[in-house]
């Protein structure tokens, strides 16, 4: 009985474990190994190559952390990491400021409308992400859609020149990741018993106090989930800063791309990727921790 129980547990756990192992852990090891290698004019462009089990000693001795030292000693990389974090954090905050009222309004909408509103939030996903970012290029470029509309309305007289600025990157990230904020926040707001805000009102809390003492704390799991769903991919974002940010916007995703494709320095690019992963693991663990305490509370 007990052995059968264990076997069944194993059968349930095996597929996701296998999946993670095959598509996350093994590639991670490959990238880690490349990051410890040296750049070399070979195919693939690094050394040493796997010599077979017999000479594993020489192989391991040939690996070093030189690339990580380069990362730390060159300001470019540290700057790119910091600016990625700053842009991603700003974008996350903006997404929250825009997404929370949206989600809140959705929970207040008549029950029959709510499924339709949810579909509307997800609707942009039906068009390719890349195409939507290209569309933003057309909107933001000088004499583009935005300039024309604002000019026609007489709000601006000169082009805004938004394209290839950090503002354009923020617009792109907020636009692209908004659903990832709205959906979890909506889910947690929707679960709040309306009797709770009524009880707060009954006990003398003004509408503003009800919002900050009851609604926001109870929506916190959704807010945190949304924040991390936006923050984490935004840090490593490549397409948006590349297409909308121009050469002025420094983000780690772009640095990674340049090292890999332009400089063909696979080992350094791998080191950049590993460090980025470590940076992302930090907030993820923090999130896990918060979610745990949230569940216990």
């Amino acid at each position: 009985m007990n052995a059968r129980h264990k076997l069944r547990r194993l059968a349930v756990l095996a597929p996701p474990m296998l999946w993670l192992g095959l598509f996350f852990f093994v590639p991670f090891l490959v990238v880690l190994r490349i990051s410890l290698s040296d750049s070399a004019p070979a195919i693939p462009p690094y050394a040493p190559h796997w010599p077979g089990l017999g000479e594993i000693g020489t192989f391991i001795r040939a690996l070093d952390i030189e690339n990580y030292i380069t990362l730390l000693s060159d300001d470019l990389y540290l700057g790119a990491y910091l600016s990625s974090l700053r842009i991603a954090a700003t974008a996350t905050l903006l997404t929250l400021l825009l997404g929370f009222p949206l989600a809140y309004a959705m929970t207040r909408a008549p029950k029959v409308w709510q499924p339709a509103l949810l579909v509307l939030v997800i609707l942009p996903f039906w068009t390719s992400f890349l195409i939507r970012v290209y569309a933003w290029m057309a909107i933001l470029r000088p004499e583009g859609v935005l300039d024309q509309v604002l000019g026609q309305l007489g709000i601006t007289s000169a082009p805004l020149n938004l394209l290839n600025t950090e503002a354009a990157v923020l617009i792109g990230i907020v636009y692209s990741y908004l659903p990832f904020m709205v959906l979890p926040v909506y889910a947690s707001l929707e679960r709040i018993d309306p009797a709770l805000t009524e009880a707060a009102a009954d006990l003398g809390a003004t509408p503003l106090k009800r919002f900050f003492l009851i609604t926001v704390p109870l929506a916190m799991p959704g807010i945190m989930a949304g924040a991390f769903l936006v923050l984490i991919p935004a840090i490593g974002e490549f397409v948006i800063p590349d297409l909308l940010g121009g050469s002025d916007t420094l983000m780690i995703g772009k640095v990674l791309w340049t090292e890999f494709f332009a400089n063909r320095d696979w080992p350094l690019a791998s080191a950049v990727a590993i460090v980025m992963l470590l940076i992302l693991v930090g907030p993820l663990l923090l999130f896990q921790r918060l979610a745990d305490t949230g569940r216990r509370a």
């Binding site: 009797a195 006990l203 003004t206």
Partner: peptide, 20 residues
Amino acid sequence: IPPHRRPTNMMFQSYALFPH
């Protein structure tokens, strides 16, 4: 007069205790 200014208090059917 809005609920938060009325001198009545209610015990809710679901109790509506603040879970946090």
